[in-house]
Simulated scan of single mutants.
Amino acid sequence: MNIIKSRELASMLATDHPVIIDARGGADALERYNQEHLENAQFVDLETELSDKAADPASGGRHPLPQPDDFGKFLGTLGIRPASTVVVYDDKNGANAAARFWWMLKAAGHEKVYVVSGGLQAIKAAGLPVTAAVSDVKPAENYPIENWTLPTVPLEVVKDVSEKPEYLVIDVRENYRYQGEGEPIDLVAGHIPGAINIPYMSNLDEEGVFLPAAALAAKYKLAFGDIDVSRVIVHCGSGVTACHTLLALAEAGLEGASLYVGSWSEWSRNSLPMAKGE
């Protein structure tokens, strides 16, 4: 289990006393957190703490991963230890920074980390206590991380396999961005040749919560066909919302797909072939 509902969170808060992480992105992330967050939740910033923004976007994309040991030091400041139960949510239905934090903690080898389906909206709807107060944190030692343990692929590999029939590259961005009809963030519109489009929002129902595991499994098994999950590569604009689909795959029992961290933000800055339309 990687995804929990708000009612499961209520039970967990009473029994497991988890470390609660409110992960958000955007220039006003801290401001939104300060307005309201789940009681005892600690703020984590996608832009400064879950990414190495000093890197060149042409070499790693807009949200490259930090070094593992730097992330380990950061986890220590949050009081997260290898034995900790960690619950993470965001205010984007788990589609943004929460999924990225989940992936990074899993890639650090952590076992007990859960994303709240529906995010802050579902937490509030369940009547769980929200506040503007910031809780004190008891730091832990640096979390021991030597390498990211979940599979990632660099640009060179994607370039080599994207049009090979034995591989599957999934672009999880909104369909209009995939088709090249518009691009609100990166410099060029379009998609990686050979990639198919399964928007990350299709992992959610009309209420903004994750589909049941069986429904997710059926959807992605149909998309994979005869391709083994180890030959599936998932990307988005900058390696963030791709983690939402990797979370959905894990919940569906289809673990082993690779994350292309640089994603379209890297690909589109390197004079590589680009496609438009379906």
Rank of each mutant, 00 (worst) to 15 (best):
M1G: 15
I3C: 00
I4P: 00
A14I: 08
A14K: 15
I20S: 12
D22R: 09
A23E: 05
R24D: 08
R24Y: 01
D28W: 03
D28C: 00
R32D: 10
Q35H: 14
E36P: 12
E36S: 15
H37P: 03
L38Y: 10
N40L: 04
E49W: 04
L50T: 01
K53S: 14
K53G: 11
A54H: 15
A54W: 10
S59D: 13
G60R: 06
R62W: 11
H63F: 15
H63S: 03
L65G: 04
P66K: 04
P68F: 12
P68R: 09
D70Q: 12
D70M: 04
K73S: 07
K73D: 10
L75C: 07
L75E: 04
T77D: 11
L78F: 07
L78A: 05
R81P: 06
R81L: 14
S84C: 02
S84F: 00
V86M: 07
V87Y: 08
V88P: 09
G94Y: 02
A95Y: 06
A98K: 03
A99P: 02
R100T: 06
F101Y: 14
W102M: 04
M104H: 10
K106Y: 02
K112N: 13
K112H: 13
V113K: 06
Y114A: 13
V115S: 13
G118Y: 13
L120C: 08
K124L: 06
K124G: 04
K124Q: 11
A125L: 05
P129H: 10
A132H: 06
A133G: 06
A133F: 07
V134M: 08
S135P: 10
V137G: 02
K138C: 09
N142I: 10
Y143S: 09
W148P: 01
L150F: 05
T152S: 15
V153M: 11
V153T: 09
V153K: 10
E156I: 07
V161K: 12
S162C: 14
E166M: 12
E166Y: 15
Y167F: 13
D171K: 03
D171P: 02
V172C: 00
R173V: 09
Y176T: 08
Q179G: 07
G180P: 03
G182P: 08
P184G: 06
V188C: 04
A195D: 00
S202E: 09
S202K: 05
D205I: 00
E207R: 14
V209S: 13
A214D: 11
A214M: 01
L216R: 03
K219P: 00
K221Q: 10
K221M: 12
L222Y: 12
G225H: 08
H235C: 12
G237T: 11
V240A: 14
A242M: 07
C243H: 15
A248C: 00
A252V: 03
L254H: 05
V261N: 14
V261Y: 12
S263G: 05
S265H: 02
E266R: 11
W267Q: 01
S268F: 04
A275S: 08
